[in-house]
Each structure stands twice: as structure tokens, then as C-alpha cells.
Design a protein around this nucleic acid. Structure first.
Lengths: 224, 224
DNA sequence: TTCTTGTCACCTAGGTGTTAATAT
DNA sequence: ATATTAACACCTAGGTGACAAGAA
């Protein structure tokens, strides 16, 4: 099973409608997708990876006057479907379980010709991050068991709209308030200007633990 | 076989008598110990690690008037013998061989009670870094083959004296000239004040390739 | 005297949203 | 109008030797 870290922060963003910046060079996600993992075989090898599924077949635009997202037509042509392997892959279950697994090297881009291995997304489209755990089967005919050797985890609160510039001003403010790298834009006393509690790992509530019991729409094999 | 990176720079330091700072919190080495590796089984798992052997049983002091090191008596009691595993260990041979392996997370300390896993050394003593490649034997009784499943590589040009403050002023100057993090101490025009050629990886000469054919004094098993 | 410790200014390296200019 | 790009000031995070003060 898998537990999403910083769930309180993800919820806060999700309530406003999370936006993630995409740039030509690649931009990290904030919040960062981080999980605690339970129940692996400590001695077995696993690959950990993420991909991003379009939530629907629509393109969106933001109506500033009503501060809301509107459907702006059918989706643009799908981007090349890429996968981000956690750079520590492959590693033993014991290694993955002994600390939080952080996908902080994952970057999002809107450059269809990107050759840095970043995740390519369409701006103004909605995406659902997915987390996959692949058991490295030591058997020689391991390909035959590919279907049973992985599990997929989906946290709906991590859905977001890809953008090249923030649309919802409240999202901008929450990013500034909770991302340490944006501290320069906080307008508060240089004193008590620390990390707010909802973004402080030391104060986060118990996150929901997800089991992959139910089938997930769009299996790993469906990703090109 | 293993090839030492930045050999020209190591040689330049070694000619002056390399010194490495040790601090309570732990200090990185400069130059960083980096190698290219050849001839691994791409599909097999290996652990890469380093340890440090006292070169002799002596304590040294630096004579500033003659700019030379003098023997100052018998060595202090040996420090706890520690080993630094490359943090990517274990990994496949293919992974280790596809790029330079850098031990830039390795730190040296003089704190006998260190609990950060750093390498503990006596200041004013001389040390020989060693590099070990351990094959992860998949057989159940792998302990029996421990002796034949590792190879040790020693580059004598990486020997150094541990110090809490630099003694030889020419070492200080060479560190400042070649370590990018010390650029603030260079006294040259803010222009053409780049990395000197001898420390520029793009200009380095072909390094010596070392085979572990000859037995090395003090096998891995001799390290507590 | 000789060696060690802690603080500091000054770097490297790279992650932020802002802003003005530019596409479309 | 709306969306994208590139340069930029301002951060985080952490690696340097200098230096003054302290310890043996």
C-alpha cells in the first residue's frame, strides 16, 4: 500500500483547482509527488515510476471575471506518452520503504520535441498523475508475468491543469505561501515569515493509505 | 579495470603533498575521487565503496620554515575503521559503467563520535584511499565466495595528509585555483578567472588504467 | 607553540513567480 | 484577446578558505 505525503497541502490546492507550470526547459511540480510505501518484499527489486493521464478530452480556458475554468473545446492532439522512472530504480524493497520516496527530479514540459526525458503535457489540459510499482521478476520468462507484476496507485487530489502561467490568483498565492523557493515573493514581516503549518511536513495530518485493490482505468500497458 | 578521473590534477596536488581538511561536521575531499569503470557484467549487481588506510604508523607536523613535513612521533590510536558505500549501491554493472562514478557525498571528519556515517581520520596523519568493487553473488552460500567476489584498486597519487587547517600554502593556492567553490578567494580579473585547464575535465589527459592483478597490502577483510 | 573550532563572506547550483515582449 | 517565452531578482541549499578565538 502507498501513502501520499503532504496530503493536507494537496487537498488545499485541489480545492482551488491545482495548476502546474510547464516550460520549455521543464518545471518541477509543486507540491512534489511524494509517497511512503508499505508491504514490499524487502529483498526484491522494484522499479518505481510515474505517468500522467489526460483527465478528459477537453481543452480549457480560465474566465478571469468569474474566476472559473471553462471548457474551450476538444483536446489538442495527445502529447508523446512518456514515463518518469524514479532515478533510484531499480532498488530493493527495503531501500524504498525506509524513507519517503520523492519524485523531485520529475519535470513537466510543453516542448513536444523535448529530449531531456521530461514529461510532455499540453497546456490548458487537465491531467491525473499515476504512480506505478513494478516488481522486477527474476524468472527468465518474466515478460509473461508483466501483467501481474505491477500495481498502480492513483490519488485524485493530485489532479491539475497544466499552464504556462498561473491563471487563478489564489493558486499563485498558495504556491508563494507554501513553496520555500518562492519565499522572495511573500509579503510579510521578514520575521515570522516561515513555512505555514499546512505545508510543514512536521505538522501534516495522517495521509490516506491507498490499496491497489480496485482496477484502475487505463492500465500501465495502455501507455505508449 | 578502473580509470582515475582528473589524474592530472591529482598528480599536481600529490607533487606538493596533498592535504585534506577534516572537520567535526565532515568535509568533502577535493579533488573528488572519481573513476570510470570497465569490464563489469552489465546485468550483475555490484556494491562500490571506499575506505582509507593509514600509510604508516606516524604522526606528522609541518615545518613552516623549511616548507616540509616532519615525523612528529608515533601515530595516535587508530580511528574507527569505516567504509563509505557509494549511495547508488547496489546497482547493475551497466549503470556503473555508463558514466563517471563520483564519490562526492563522501565526507571526512576528525570526530571520533561521529554518527553521520562519515569517514573518521586522525589529523596530521597520512592516508591512502582505496576503492573496492564488490560483486553481489546471487548464490545462497555467497559468503563462502566473499574472497573472490571483490576487487580493490589503489591509486597512490590520491594519498594525502589529513589536516584541520592547511599547512602548505601552495596547497591552499592550488585548492583555490582549482575548486569552483573557492572562486571567491581567487585574486584575478573578474573576467578570465575561469577554471584552469589542469582542473577542467574537458582538457584532462588520458588517465592511467589500473588492473587489480597484483595483491594489495591489507585486504578488505582486514578493515574492521 | 601548535593545533582545533566556530563564524563568516563569498561562491556554485538551481528552483521561484514577475514582468515585458512576443506570438497566435 | 489569449497564450507563450525569455530575462531577471530573489530565494534555498550547501561547499570554500579566512580569520579570530579557544584548547592542549
Amino acid at each position: 500500500s502507498v501513502q501520499l505525503e503532504m496530503k493536507a497541502l494537496w487537498d488545499e490546492f485541489n480545492q482551488l483547482g491545482t495548476e502546474m507550470i510547464v516550460t520549455k526547459a521543464g518545471r518541477r511540480m509543486f507540491p512534489t509527488f511524494q509517497v511512503k510505501i508499505f508491504g514490499m518484499d524487502p529483498m526484491a527489486d522494484y522499479m518505481l515510476l510515474m505517468d500522467f493521464l489526460p483527465v478528459d478530452d477537453k481543452r480549457y480556458r480560465y474566465a478571469f471575471h468569474s474566476s472559473s475554468w471553462l471548457v474551450a473545446g476538444k483536446a489538442d492532439p495527445a502529447t508523446p506518452g512518456r514515463v518518469h522512472y524514479h532515478p533510484d530504480s531499480p532498488a530493493k524493497g527495503a531501500q524504498w520503504m525506509k524513507q519517503i520516496v520523492s519524485f523531485d527530479k520529475l519535470k513537466l514540459t510543453n516542448n513536444l520535441l523535448d529530449d531531456n526525458g521530461h514529461i510532455i503535457l499540453n497546456s490548458m489540459h487537465r491531467y491525473q498523475p499515476r504512480f506505478h510499482v513494478v516488481y522486477v521478476d527474476p524468472r527468465k520468462d518474466s515478460e509473461k508475468y508483466a501483467e501481474e507484476n505491477y500495481k498502480t496507485f492513483v490519488f485524485e487530489e493530485t489532479r491539475f491543469t497544466a499552464v504556462t502561467a498561473y491563471q487563478n490568483h489564489r493558486i499563485t498565492q498558495l504556491k508563494i505561501a507554501s513553496n520555500p523557493f518562492a519565499k522572495g515573493f511573500r509579503d510579510c514581516d521578514p520575521e515570522d515569515c516561515g513555512t505555514p503549518i499546512h505545508a510543514d511536513p512536521a505538522h501534516q495530518l495522517m495521509s490516506r493509505v491507498l490499496s491497489p485493490a480496485l482496477p484502475v482505468p487505463g492500465g500501465l500497458h495502455a501507455v505508449p
